[in-house]
Amino acid sequence: MAPSNLPAALLLLLLLASSGPLRPTLSGAAPLEPVEVSLVAGAQEKGAVCLDGTPPGYHLQRGSGDGSGSWLVHLEGGGWCSTLKDCSGRRMSVLGSSKFMKPLQFAGHGIFDSDEIYNPDFYNWNKVYVRYCDGASFAGDAEGQAQDGTTVYFRGLRIYEAVIGELMEKGLANATQVLFTGCSAGGLATILHCDDFSARFPQQVSVKCFADAGFFLDVKDISGERSFWSFYNRVVQLQTSVAQGLPCQQGPNRELIKSIRTPMFILNSAYDSWQIQNVLLPTSSSPEKTWLSCKDNIRNCNSTQIKVLDEIRNTMINDLKVINDKADWGMFIDSCFTHCQTLFRVSWSSPTSPRLGNKNIAKVVGDWYFGRSQGVKEIDCEYPCNPTCNSLPPP
């Protein structure tokens, strides 16, 4: 299938994303075998390549039992690169080349866990972890020239198309129920591609989308500047071809989610640690020493600083009010100082995981997906009201 064209307004809303969200890795000791990486066949011929021109990859673990017809497809996060120098540098890492992609350990990692106790609704599903190597949330389609004369490929949209196409051939096309997910930059990609992904399946197939830490805010930093807009403009110039003529406009994430027809679940912290550290308090804003301490750990913030963070929370809650009119949507907005919560057992479903209404994230997401509860929209009170957040380590 040829790469689809994202509407300019939607691609621009990618620019509400950040330059380098935390990239959760699925590493660490666990009893089960790691899942090998699969490289997309014929990727170079399709132009669906990583920043360095190598084929993109994904990890597929087959489902079993009553989960053999169900699929979880997850888009990895990992920030953005906004200059040729930065993107060229990524080519020497897993974020820009499949040469560095190693097997991943799914066991013990949140929504990928194969332990029914910790992941009761999705433990035996087919699970796919799509690697992120394009630098712009699986959405760009252009190329550039590095300083050494080599080509840097911005082919995220083609990667998305090629990976999903290959998965359809491997059984995804026959799925009976599907959950399309992503975290951080991958969470934003999930929002952007949600309707396109859903449209690939017959109407009787249950397809829903789940964005973790992908709802980025357009707010001023503490110096009163929207310091990320210069970064956003660089991403536009790099990741889209001249022929696309993408205009530089602005618009909040809430306008994007208004247009999505597929049922979606939004998981976010109202005190998202990455957004506080990089949108509210970027280095360019020259935060004072007391702010640097607060930026590192919300427990170090004084009452005046907490009031500023509360304003960020209120902006997010206000922007998400558009979800209230979507009966088949859900959300879990906690007050924990964290970023990305689906990939770790400690935040997804452990006995000490964050809870809202006495339910952890795994329970709320499962209730939403399977329709076990009506109106699954949970919003936490202001920090530091929720003691279950204390079990999470500082980011």
Rank of each mutant, 00 (worst) to 15 (best):
W71S: 10
V73I: 11
Q44G: 01
G224R: 08
S114Q: 14
T150I: 11
K99L: 14
F138D: 02
N126K: 06
L280W: 06
D66A: 08
R299M: 15
P56W: 02
V308W: 13
N278A: 09
E169V: 03
S349L: 01
R345M: 09
K99P: 06
T352D: 06
V235S: 06
L12A: 15
D272H: 03
S350K: 08
P282K: 10
V279Y: 11
L292T: 08
S349E: 00
F112L: 00
T290E: 11
K170W: 13
C381N: 13
A139V: 05
G28R: 04
F231A: 09
D113Q: 08
I111H: 04
L292K: 14
L238I: 05
N126S: 08
R254W: 08
R226I: 12
G57T: 04
A107G: 13
M316S: 06
N126R: 07
C194K: 00
N268I: 05
V40Y: 05
L343W: 01
A146K: 07
L16K: 15
T315F: 09
A9F: 10
P394D: 04
R158S: 12
G20V: 02
G149V: 07
S286R: 15
S70H: 10
Y132R: 03
L267N: 10
V322R: 03
T352Y: 02
R158N: 08
S259R: 12
Q177L: 02
W80T: 08
P21A: 09
L14W: 08
M92H: 14
V279D: 09
D272S: 02
G96A: 03
M264L: 12
K363T: 13
P354E: 00
V128E: 06
V35Q: 05
E166R: 04
R254N: 12
I191Y: 04
D334I: 01
G89P: 03
C385F: 13
K295H: 08
S349G: 14
P3T: 05
A243C: 11
G214R: 00
F228H: 14
F122T: 02
V205N: 00
D296M: 12
G330V: 11
L16P: 08
S241Q: 05
G149I: 12
A43M: 07
S230Q: 15
